[in-house]
Design a protein around this nucleic acid. Structure first.
Lengths: 157, 157
DNA sequence: TATGAAAGAACCTGGCC
DNA sequence: GGCCAGGTTCTTTCATA
């Protein structure tokens, strides 16, 4: 589906503040409130916008430690198999298969370093996992609210 | 600051749907709409909730490729220095310093593999960057809306 | 200190042009 | 896409425990 300038601007506004009123968004992009609502409804129907979520300071909820874990898997392990298995570990907040030596890269959040250790042990115990290699996060530099609205500036750079 | 059961439930509801009405949230957590609003206001003031954002399908906006880039930096490069420098690259959606061989791990989103290549070149051109090592994402397995509401289940595992 | 109820203002939503 | 009207939600105030 095709997104025009207005759609991108509306998405940008909603990424910045998902609870902004249609009138506020409309003022910003140059549209009436009802026109904005119609577009937002359409963007949700087509799947461009998948939902709205609160941005939370993980530390405030007790998740003070994060780590990245590389998974080295047995010969013919499928991505689907990995996905199903790691979905059972609630500490895994993000995961993907990647090119390079490792097969998958996992991002985990835990309450402390000991907790990280337990999670890695649990992951390593998965039958298809041959080896893991992990890095604990020292300090977070960037955690962007997906700034996907600056498509032009990015591709013209 | 201290968060009780109700605060966690409210945050959980807002993570699932940031545009839920206070009445809806109240029904779910067992509180009146006005009580929910007061708590949400307080959670925002104290910084537990940092904002509300739209969840977007990056591909719908043209960001079809993502990669992770490890940065190996010159002797005494400070995290702050790295942070300032990479913030100038809009394709970097997340970044942190880490333990292990590399100094920093960056998550980047781009329009295609060629774009990834250009971003890596630009990053490698930063004066403090000695070497980079990158992995292109093959398939995303998990991209959790920070499921930070299941604190108990996680720490009791 | 925190809650529920209530009222006016603001906002959403759908129909119509 | 804009305008409008009826219904809903927000926000503040007040009384209460």
């Amino acid at each position: 589906m095709e997104l025009d300038r207005l759609d991108r601007d509306i998405i940008g506004a909603l990424i910045e503040d998902a609870r902004a009123t249609y009138a506020e968004i409309g003022q910003r992009v140059g549209l009436s409130a009802s026109a904005v609502k119609r577009r937002v409804d359409r963007l949700r129907e087509t799947g461009a916008i998948t939902g709205f979520t609160a941005r939370v300071q993980p530390a405030a909820l007790g998740w003070t430690t994060e780590a990245y874990v590389e998974l080295f898997c047995a010969g013919k392990t499928s991505p689907a198999e990995i996905g199903v298995a790691i979905a059972r570990h609630p500490e895994v907040v993000s995961a993907c298969t990647i090119t390079g030596e490792a097969d998958a890269l996992l991002h985990i959040r835990a309450t402390d370093v000991r907790h990280v250790e337990r999670v890695i042990e649990r992951l390593a115990a998965e039958p298809f996992v041959v080896r893991t290699k992990s890095s604990v996060v020292l300090s977070r530099l960037i955690d962007a609210p997906p700034a996907l609205a600056r498509n032009e500036s990015a591709s013209s750079a």
